[in-house]
């Protein structure tokens, strides 16, 4: 593998969750909060439509760093912290980008951002991997 250096851009991940993704994620995760799977309910509580699970977006952030830096190795990610910001919606592309913040031996810390259009879904995300 090429040497990883501070400031390196991590290969970005682009995903467009389809209309039924929140339903599949609800089934997979066990989180059936109606704001994610019921468009009418979501609108009734003042949301624009049913919204993505924040932990789904965090799952994409985890996947992005593991795929870009560790060949998808599930044992590489040691820590991930995120702050949730804007609400994600189905049927619009999500872009996950990252920059290497520090390298300490085989430990790499990546600053990550997930955006959807103009909306920041996740900010101040920090992923620590052991490579």
């Amino acid at each position: 593998m090429a040497e990883i250096e501070v400031g390196d851009e991590v290969r970005e991940l682009r995903v467009t969750p389809d209309k039924y993704l929140p339903h599949r994620y609800a089934g997979a995760s066990g989180d059936f909060n109606p704001i994610h799977i019921d468009d009418e309910f979501a609108k009734a509580v003042g949301l624009p439509r049913n919204i993505l699970h924040g932990l789904y977006t965090m799952g994409l952030v985890a996947k992005a760093s593991a795929v870009a830096l560790a060949g998808g190795d599930p044992a590489a990610l040691k820590r991930l912290s995120v702050q949730f910001r804007g609400m994600g919606v189905p049927e619009q592309e999500i872009v996950v980008t990252g920059t290497v913040k520090s390298v300490n031996g085989n430990r790499v810390v990546v600053d990550t951002v997930a955006t959807q259009g103009e909306t920041k879904l996740v900010k101040n995300a920090e992923a620590e991997l052991e490579l």
Binding site: S29, L55, M58, G59, K63, L77, L80
Partner: peptide, 14 residues
């Protein structure tokens, strides 16, 4: 078969 790291929501949410 290995769980992806964020599979943790499945066992930790309940």
């Amino acid at each position: 078969v290995v769980a992806p790291p964020m599979f943790c929501v499945v066992y930790a949410l309940p």
